[in-house]
Amino acid sequence: MTLPEFTLLRPRNLPEAIDSLDRHRGDIQVIAGGTDLVPSLKQRLFAPRYLLDLKPIRDLRGIRNGHGLTIGAMTTVGAIADSPLVAEKFPVLAAAAAAIASPVLRTTGTLGGNLCLDTRCLWYNQSPFWRASCGFCLKKDGKVCHVAPGGEKCWAVFSGDTAPALLALGAEIEIASPRASRRLPLADFYTGDGMARIKLAGDEILTRVHLPESSAGLRGAYFKYRLRGSIDYPLAGVAVALDLAPDGTCRRGALAVTALNPKPQLIPGAEAALRGSRLSDDLLDRLAELTNRAIKPLSTSASTPDYRRHIARVFVRRAVRQAWQA
């Protein structure tokens, strides 16, 4: 398969990158590791005139310890999965990063790319010939959503693994632009719309992820449902982070999911349910039910919506139990 024609821009530093984005606004796309973007370009899901390669900007790479942890957006997910520092301070992130795709992709894919991952759907991630055969779809070149034909909304599903872990940890992201750089909770980054999935303007770049010191040392677990032991995107993913008192009571905790909605999300009410609780079947049932209410899986993937609901509930129970007893 050929790639579309484009001009590759390789800025040496962030200001140069921002400048290019600003100049070619609307006709330019950022490429990080390219593990998701390059196949999508081959499928002509995008055909920008310019590609902005962030690889040369060394400043965007690396894990810095300090008050909390700062991870550059261009840090590979493999480096995060292998980092003893991450494993020690934020085990749920290490687990989520290690669950991504396969080793040969983790060496290349980046944290920023994983957070900005395009939403996925069996009717969308296909070749131009294939998409033409079904008259295209709402997300790209068409008018109909084949998954929910009556609707106006795109239900393509967000399938990144690290986002739920970072949501559970209360991570913030830093975004650079021609204006001042801004910092926002990751939870505010996602729109829930399968088409315009993230709140990132055309002249903005996600540069860093900040993990708060207050979340360091939280117990965590990430459960990923997929049909194979590797390669596959998640069909459901559950991340949990817990702060337990010495007597086993939960002081603070959060639960987040991925691959079940057009956005990764914290489960509303989970934090309140966890606070001050002890591990019990009742609690787990309550969390499972809260999750069930928050998700809307549709037939965007190989697994059925019903089953993904079921597995989400089971994995919530298991992940919370495992984190609690870790």
Binding site: P39, Q43, L51, S102, L105, T107, T108
Partner: peptide, 25 residues
């Protein structure tokens, strides 16, 4: 499309899929 691994090469000591990498980079 990065699903099979047949194109794995080693880049700076790490295995990577050459079907994903833009050569000029």
């Amino acid at each position: 499309d990065s699903s099979c691994g047949a194109c794995t090469v080693v880049v700076d000591g790490q295995p990577m899929l050459s079907c994903l990498l833009l050569a000029v980079s």
